[in-house]
């Protein structure tokens, strides 16, 4: 990670300001939900997990952060939430210096860490209510907020069960519920739906969308392309400690020089993928090679991600052999 060689992203990402980007460019005097400047995190062993990240997140915006394992996503989020002290740089949350005043900024945040334990001997209601009280909610507010979140997260039938008796997915939903308690203006969610089944994932997305509809700002990291596409106003891609791309989905897609994706399987080979500049070029290629079975589609965020990082996300997808076609 400390290599000085330019990354794939550095070589390829060209930041051009489109209309969509302008929408998210803050006014000079606007107080951002999150403002990060020159963020560097260097660990004692010399590893540079973040290498000068700048980021503005406007109020009410949903930003998803994508990146391969070890890219520095969690380190980045842990610094925003004051869990980790940066080596250099500044972080402001709603205009408050998060490095100097961690307790103050935590009052404005709901946080779901990537790996956190729950208290198994508490019931679901006790767990949420006690943490609501720890967030500073009055007894009645804590009770009300807990009831609402239990319902939103579809945990009504588990209210009186001990957390230790719940499934892994239900426990993960409790962690998300803890972040939502008290309707904080900023949610920072580190891989909130990892380990959830598809139905629970959609329930969680609905809860996040509901929070966004109330005006909540959301910063989340994810391994799921679909999650980033569904939830985000903008998507940031972190690779080797740097934010190598940041923008709305359309803008990121527009960066692909070859934006048509041809997937096919030749005899018993692994599935293959090739990219083409035009639909016709892709179709012609398929016809020329007499392909009996293939699919042709516009490139997706997954393709942008691969183009920028050289990695694939979502390991559950079948492995594909990727070729960059000269066409």
């Amino acid at each position: 990670m400390s290599s000085a060689a330019p990354t794939i992203g550095e070589q390829r990402a060209v930041v051009g300001e489109t209309e969509a980007t302008k929408k998210f460019r803050p006014a000079d005097d606007e107080v951002m939900a999150v403002r990060v400047r020159g963020l560097v995190k260097r660990y004692r062993d010399g590893t540079e997990a973040n290498r000068g990240i700048d980021l503005d997140v406007r109020r009410g915006e949903t930003l998803s952060i994508l990146g391969p394992n070890g890219a520095g996503k969690t380190t980045f989020l842990r610094q925003i939430t004051s869990e980790l002290r940066p080596t250099a740089g500044t972080i402001e949350i709603f205009g408050v210096d998060a490095i100097a005043r961690p307790q103050q900024v935590k009052r404005k945040m709901g946080i779901t860490p990537q790996e956190a334990g729950v208290f198994e001997t508490l019931t679901v209601r006790e767990h949420l209510e006690l943490f609501a009280r720890l967030k500073g909610l009055a007894r009645d507010e804590a009770h009300e907020s807990t009831s609402e979140i239990i319902h939103e997260l579809d945990l009504d039938r588990e209210t009186s069960r001990r957390v230790g008796q719940l499934s892994g997915g239900q426990r993960r939903r409790i962690l998300i519920g803890l972040a939502l308690l008290g309707q904080p203006p900023l949610l920072v969610l580190d891989e909130p739906t990892t380990g959830l089944d598809p139905a629970s994932r959609r329930t969680t997305w609905a809860v996040i969308r509901k929070a966004v509809a109330r005006g909540t700002t959301v910063v989340l990291s994810t391994h799921y392309i679909e999650e980033a596409e569904h939830l985000s106003d903008r998507i940031g891609i972190i690779s080797e400690g740097r934010m190598i791309a940041l923008g709305p989905l359309d803008e990121l897609l527009a960066r692909l020089p070859k934006s048509y994706r041809l997937s096919y399987r030749a005899s018993l080979e692994q599935p293959r993928v090739q990219y083409f500049a035009t639909f016709d070029a892709a179709q012609q290629y398929a016809v020329q090679r007499g392909m009996a079975e293939y699919s042709l589609a516009r490139a997706s965020l997954e393709d942008v991600y691969f183009e920028l990082t050289g990695h694939r996300l979502e390991a559950e997808e079948p492995a594909e052999e990727i070729a960059r076609c000269p066409a």
Binding site: Q103, K106, M109, E115, G117, V118, K135, L175
Partner: peptide, 17 residues
């Protein structure tokens, strides 16, 4: 146990001294 099972992280996310 709180520290190594990640429960302490839950407290660390709160405005708690």
């Amino acid at each position: 146990e709180n520290r190594f099972t990640g429960r302490l992280k839950l407290f660390a996310t709160l405005p708690l001294a």
